[in-house]
């Protein structure tokens, strides 16, 4: 008769306490199966070795030494925050500069003066078309896109915090 041995994965799951198979059915099987008993014991021994203290020791005054550096750390923390704000501000200023330089404000002023709800859609379309055509070629368009990405990334960094990747 063919014997259904436990797989090594099933044995590990059982020892991890994550198996759906009951302890009784395991014990029943082990009574009659030498191969599974051997495998089970090997893993049992391995598990008891793996939880032994590996003796990884940091120096005894490790915590005290670090705490004595707190004033320096606090200063570094303040500098870190300042640099974030500084980078963000520069990014936003650069983007605004590009927008102010390339957008034709006379068209906006004209549009505002002629504003009426009925012609809003057409006005917006005209304005977009004129504004985009006033950009001097694709290079400038790409440049402003890159700046937009820079600002977005900076804002993400400021708002979401460091991710340690």
């Amino acid at each position: 008769m063919a014997v259904n041995h436990w797989t090594e994965e099933q044995i590990q799951e059982f020892l991890d306490g994550k198996s759906s198979i009951s302890k009784n059915s395991l014990e029943e099987h082990l009574k009659s199966c030498e191969a599974c008993t051997k495998s089970f014991r090997y893993y049992q021994n391995l598990y008891s070795e793996l939880i032994r203290d590996p003796g990884f020791k940091l120096s005894t005054d490790f915590a005290r030494n670090l705490v004595s550096r707190i004033p320096q750390l606090a200063q570094a923390r303040a500098r870190f925050k300042f640099s974030d704000v500084f980078i963000g501000s520069v990014g936003i200023a650069a983007l605004l500069g590009v927008m102010i330089f390339f957008i034709d404000f006379s068209i906006i002023a004209e549009t505002v003066a002629k504003f009426s709800f009925s012609s809003l859609k057409a006005d917006v379309q005209d304005w977009l078309r004129n504004s985009l055509s006033s950009l001097n070629g694709g290079v400038l368009l790409i440049g402003s896109s890159v700046l937009t990405l820079l600002v977005t990334a900076t804002l993400d960094r400021l708002l979401s915090g460091p991710k340690y990747r």
Partner: peptide, 24 residues
């Protein structure tokens, strides 16, 4: 809030975990 003793407590509590990862 700047409590150095609290930071020392955090270090002592998490020293084994950090040493496990770093030493390995």
């Amino acid at each position: 809030s700047g409590d150095a003793q609290a930071f020392e407590t955090l270090i002592e509590e998490h020293k084994p975990l950090v040493s496990h990862v770093v030493f390995r």
